[in-house]
Design a protein around this nucleic acid. Structure first.
Lengths: 151, 151
DNA sequence: TCTTGATCCTCCAGTCGCTAGAGAATTTAG
DNA sequence: CTAAATTCTCTAGCGACTGGAGGATCAAGA
């Protein structure tokens, strides 16, 4: 089974923050921000005080980015990272975290769908005439026009 | 056709900010915030400097609240309010605003659904064993596990 | 070698839409 | 009359970044 150390560049040049940003799609100030809140460890510095990274940084930052894209909050990611760093532990916590998150996503979808129906109704009812007879304004002005009242 | 002035209390007591908050479901600091950013006009004050409101304020604030609940940004609401205040104008702008908003909602739903599928896959694949074999961590660590790559 | 432009550093302020607290004044209920 | 509730202003904080100022350093071409 091949590992990193089998590959040609077994001691690769450390990455600059800009290179890391390019490889992960995370902006430079955001990387520094993640370090400042402790999501990323403090990067080792060069003689001239520049941050250096390696392929481990790329993996960790991709993990963070992916989790953020999936809608996880930073606090949740902090917990997930701690679990990922400790692979011998039972994963019930990670599972629970993800399940809780899933429930949140589902309720967001439901609310957005109710919202979409309402805005759609609003738009389709518009007579394109005058504001006086415009459903958009009317619906916004009076909640009684709505199909749902739980938004 | 009955109007306001036909009703018994034709000169109703002005509302306090607390009463307005209760009638609209908008919190007091939020009402003051809306005034500070110009969504609500500056409320007339009593001799002791307290804000006073009337039924028009209730309508306007409900309009704002409803639009916020529908996901409109404050800037959009500002435009919608300006249009609602000018009912003789053609409503193409309001319509366009709402249509743009609808498109935004629809794309948010689509992205959330992709996300939901992915988190669901993550959760369902979890062997409840160890982090080492946990799909939750695995999927987060490697985007290649994902069905979609456009989230 | 010099110079130019790209990249990096730190620190601070701003974004959005609120939300909460301090501390003072006033109103209302018992 | 007193005590509790409400209101006022002002300020700061939330989450998750994002951007700019002002300065240091690096890499590449003439």
């Amino acid at each position: 089974m091949p590992t990193m150390s089998d590959l040609p560049n077994s001691s690769p040049t450390p990455l600059t923050i800009g290179a890391l940003a390019k490889q992960t799609g995370v902006k430079i100030p955001t990387i520094r921000y993640y370090e400042s809140i402790g999501l990323l460890p403090e990067a080792p510095r060069t003689g001239s005080n520049r941050r250096t990274y390696d392929s481990g940084s790329v993996r960790r930052l991709r993990f963070i980015r992916h989790a953020r894209e999936l809608g996880f909050e930073v606090e949740a990611i902090r917990q997930l990272l701690a679990m990922a760093d400790d692979p011998g532990q039972p994963c019930r916590e990670a599972d629970l975290l993800a399940r809780t998150h899933l429930a949140g996503i589902e309720s967001r979808i439901a609310r957005l769908e109710a919202l979409r129906d309402e805005v759609r109704r609003m738009v389709e009812g518009c007579a394109q005439d005058q504001v006086r007879s415009c459903h958009v304004i009317e619906v916004l002005a009076d909640h009684a026009h709505c199909l749902h009242d739980r938004h």
